[in-house]
Nucleic acid binder design. Structure first.
Lengths: 230, 230
DNA sequence: ATAATCCATTGATCTATATCAATAGTGTGA
DNA sequence: TCACACTATTGATATAGATCAATGGATTAT
């Protein structure tokens, strides 16, 4: 893991498209002061569940997975792509991480002192509100996930993950996943073998085209149907 | 459902023990102005998933369950007892409820206009921070729940629910549950029959004493063990 | 080039859990 | 008090999904 102090300033960074849009230039400058950039190779861990969380992480390049290390297996809460930031719930509770984060691809992130962030939330109500909005959206997403995981059968869960990957992560239809089958399994709460089998089933039924790591949704309507019927 | 406009004022209400402790008297007065009290009989619905959420709900008496209506079955996210409030993630997103709430026992609640609440969050950074802290704790709780539900087998899940009921809801050891076996099942993501069976198993092993709706943890260490081993 | 590793795939088997069905309590209203 | 409705309980059966085991590709190191 190489730490590289970049010269770039937050003011011109495209991070601003995110919740930072509600910050004034001098506030962005505050963030910029306590910030440094880190590069991670694929597979490297950004932070580990249970460790202190002194900064929040803003992804500027690559892809990371957020996962809870459970009893023997992992549960992937979601993927994070640029430009988005990772801000766990521990920050306002006990300053610990409640999930781990690892780079899935070659990844670059900015780390910012969490106290600066907290200070801005106290100072700027627009920023605070934007932050709460963001946390709320995250909670809603988690609700959807927990319902999918606990109430749907494997085909429904895989369908949900496929839609998630296309809509929230890769954005286009034939998309090449950089995550492994194991990750796919950890996203949908099943074993690696099962995720492979379901993927094959969907392929055999002509709903998906799966070639190695490239996935194409051929029959969106039917896939949506599978997601609905559990 | 009878609506009763109570004469009591927020300033003397024990609601203040909650996040309201960071509010000044005049701010409590703001809340008090837009507030009214409602009584619910056991089984009655406080609000329904998908409907607009114009106020936040503060429970002053009774017990309520928060549940997501999923595909055929419900998932109970948790129970709410006095004095605690219910503030769903939809409030800052699209003003919809993302879960339903129903009274489990005879219940009294105060409803407060959500805009007053939002205004106070903008005005008072302490209050905002307290609110974020609260939302964060909720998120951590949800993480624990999703790991329990997706990675543990039935005995471990029931063990977790038993601990939850004793520690977070009823507070004492032999406790009488006011929730049904179906609710127990919806809390632990299994069928009603399975929840009954596991309960019986734990009883037969001498870990629990179950008499009707009264549950006593006899062997806490072993129950903890079951929770751990999944 | 070859070995070594890691990831993906497939088949066979086993088991946790749901579902179905029947019965037994338990309270409630006429 | 009796009938009705609802919840709890128990047993029998079916099945979704995990686990185990073997093999095949692909990538990396020697």
């Amino acid at each position: 893991m190489n730490k590289i102090q970049e010269s770039e300033n937050c003011k011109n960074c495209n991070c601003k498209t995110s919740i930072f849009s509600s910050l004034k230039p001098e506030e962005l400058e505050q963030i910029n002061k306590g910030r440094y950039t880190v590069h991670y190779k694929a597979g490297e861990i950004l932070f580990k569940q249970g460790t202190p969380s002194p900064h929040f992480v803003c992804l500027t390049k690559g892809l990371a997975k957020l996962y809870i290390e459970g009893y023997g297996k992992n549960l992937i809460l979601g993927l994070v792509k640029p430009v988005d930031y990772i801000f766990g719930p521990g920050t306002y509770v006990d300053n610990r991480h409640y999930y781990s984060a690892a780079a899935v691809e070659e990844t670059t992130a900015c780390l910012v002192d969490v106290n600066i962030f907290k200070e801005l939330i106290r100072q700027n109500p627009d920023f605070a509100e934007e932050f709460i909005r963001r946390v709320s959206r995250q909670a809603i997403f988690n609700f959807d996930q927990v319902v999918s995981l606990t109430q749907k059968q494997m085909p429904g869960r895989i369908a949900d993950v496929i839609f998630y990957l296309r809509e929230k992560i890769y954005g286009i239809n034939p998309f090449e996943i950089s995550i492994s089958r194991q990750d796919l399994a950890d996203l949908s709460g099943m074993s690696k073998e099962s995720s492979i089998r379901i993927l094959k089933e969907l392929k055999d039924e002509g709903i998906l085209k799966v070639t190695g790591n490239t996935i194409e949704i051929l029959n969106e309507k039917q896939l949506r149907q599978i997601s609905q019927t559990g």
